[in-house]
Simulated assay, not measured.
Amino acid sequence: MSVTAQSTHERQSTHLCAIHARESMMAKLAFLGLGVMGYPMAGHLQAAGHEVTVYNRTATKSEAWVAQHGGAHAPSPREAAQGADFVMSCVGNDDDLRDVCLGKDGAFKGMKTGAIFVDHTTVSAAVTRELFGEAKGHGVSFIDAPISGGQAGAENGQLSVMCGGEQVAYDKAEPVIAAYAKICRRLGDSGAGQVTKMCNQIAIAGLVQGLSESLNFAEKAGLDIPAVVEVISQGAAGSWQMSNRYQTMADDKFDHGFAVDWMRKDLKICLQTGDEIGASLPVTALVDQFYKEVQAMGGARWDTSSLIARLRKLG
Results as ranks from 00 to 15, higher is better:
W262F: 09
D105E: 14
T53H: 15
V208G: 04
V208H: 09
E174Y: 09
D261E: 09
C17G: 11
D95H: 05
A279K: 09
K28N: 10
I225Q: 08
K136T: 14
Y55T: 07
M297T: 00
G298V: 05
T121L: 10
A42F: 07
L45E: 07
V228Y: 06
T4M: 12
E51D: 14
A250W: 01
E63I: 15
M249I: 11
S160T: 15
A47S: 14
V283M: 14
I277Y: 06
A107M: 02
E230G: 15
K182S: 11
N200Q: 10
H15F: 08
A126K: 15
T273E: 12
S141A: 15
A205T: 01
A237E: 09
Q158S: 14
Q234R: 15
L34R: 01
C101A: 09
A192I: 00
I277M: 01
E79N: 09
L314C: 08
D251S: 10
T121E: 08
H44C: 05
Q289C: 08
V161S: 07
T128E: 04
T60K: 15
G157A: 05
A300M: 08
K109Q: 06
A205D: 02
L187E: 02
S24N: 13
C17P: 00
P77N: 12
H69T: 02
G150T: 00
Q6H: 15
I19S: 10
I308E: 01
E219R: 08
S243A: 15
L16N: 06
L211E: 08
L34C: 06
S89F: 06
W240L: 14
D261G: 02
G70K: 03
T121D: 12
V161F: 11
M242V: 07
G299H: 06
A221R: 09
S243E: 15
L307S: 05
P146E: 10
T53I: 12
I308Q: 00
T284V: 08
S7Y: 13
A67T: 11
G149H: 06
S305M: 03
A135K: 02
S305H: 03
K313I: 03
N156E: 13
M37D: 01
E134D: 04
A181C: 04
